[in-house]
């Protein structure tokens, strides 16, 4: 943790739960460097966005933390233990809702529980609560094809929370949705992860979205993919849409853009 981060806000004093230790990832027998020496510390409960153009390694970094791919060098460390594969304390959500079409919303939300053991009555109650939380109380028995794109992502969000993981990784989760739906879901996402006290890492290519949501923005640049700068976002919480019009917000956006532009 840097000195600048340590004295910012009280929450920054929270212990580190996700850390990167010079993570390198190469593909095609080392000829392509997707991620070059990524090092960072993310405190408990923080909301971090990875922002950058395509090919900057943001999705690669997310998958490394998720344990879906292995680093070529270095390591991702979650809760003090090196990530060597998918773990119960880490859960991921994808750009596509990845719902199973033959299952109702409720059954989709219950999937993580089902895969790790048997489903109890309490699990079902909890899944229904989560559907309620994401505003889909009336759609518990609808099939994915009966839901709009935004509603499908809400089901995916409920499924993410059903895992019980406290590290949430989101890979452009609302990227395929229209602007209005996305804004709305972003606000709900903030409310919900705030309620759960989860640590969230969010991938996006939208600079405003990244600043609006986050405590920290990791600005990433391509060829080779690396974290060019970590921008602290000291806007107060809860965030409101009106904040996007303030000079502070614009200054932050300017900072990120300048970093991305100075390639």
């Amino acid at each position: 943790m840097t000195a600048a981060q340590a004295d910012a806000e009280p929450r920054r004093a929270a212990p580190t739960v996700v850390a990167g230790d010079a993570i390198v990832k190469t593909f095609a027998n080392g000829s392509v460097t997707a991620l070059d020496r990524a090092s960072f510390d993310i405190p408990k409960g923080a909301f971090v966005s990875l922002v950058g153009p395509s090919g900057c390694g943001k999705s690669t970094l997310l998958r490394l933390i998720a344990g879906l791919i292995a680093p070529s060098q270095g390591a991702a460390i979650v809760h003090g233990r090196e990530v060597t594969g998918p773990r119960p304390d880490i859960a991921m959500m994808f750009q596509k809702a990845t719902l199973l079409e033959w299952r109702t919303s409720l059954e989709n939300v219950l999937l993580p529980t089902e895969l790790s053991g048997t489903v109890t009555k309490a699990d079902r109650a909890r899944a229904l609560d989560l559907l309620n939380l994401v505003g889909l109380k009336d759609f518990a028995f609808a099939f994915p094809a009966q839901l709009s794109g935004g509603m499908q992502q809400r089901v995916a969000l409920a499924r993410l929370l059903q895992t019980g993981a406290d590290i949430l990784l989101l890979d452009e989760p609302f990227g395929a949705l229209d602007e209005f739906t996305r804004e709305h879901l972003n606000l709900e996402l903030l409310r919900i992860v705030g309620e759960f006290g989860a640590t969230t890492i969010f991938v996006t290519h939208n600079i405003n979205e990244a600043i609006f949501l986050s405590d920290q923005v990791f600005v990433m640049t391509p060829r080779p993919g690396k974290i060019a700068k970590i921008v602290d976002i000291n806007l107060p919480r809860p965030r409101t849409l009106a904040m996007q019009l303030t000079p502070e917000f614009n200054a932050l956006a300017e900072d990120v853009r300048a970093t991305l532009g100075a390639l």
Binding site: L68, T98, L115
Partner: peptide, 28 residues
């Protein structure tokens, strides 16, 4: 779909679970 397989992997599904709950229904 690759992303669904990735989901099952991230949820630490066993091979048998992936086959029974994802691959076969998807192929039906």
């Amino acid at each position: 779909p690759a992303e669904k397989l990735e989901l099952f992997r991230s949820l630490r599904a066993t091979k048998w679970q992936t086959l029974r709950k994802l691959v076969l229904p998807d192929a039906v």
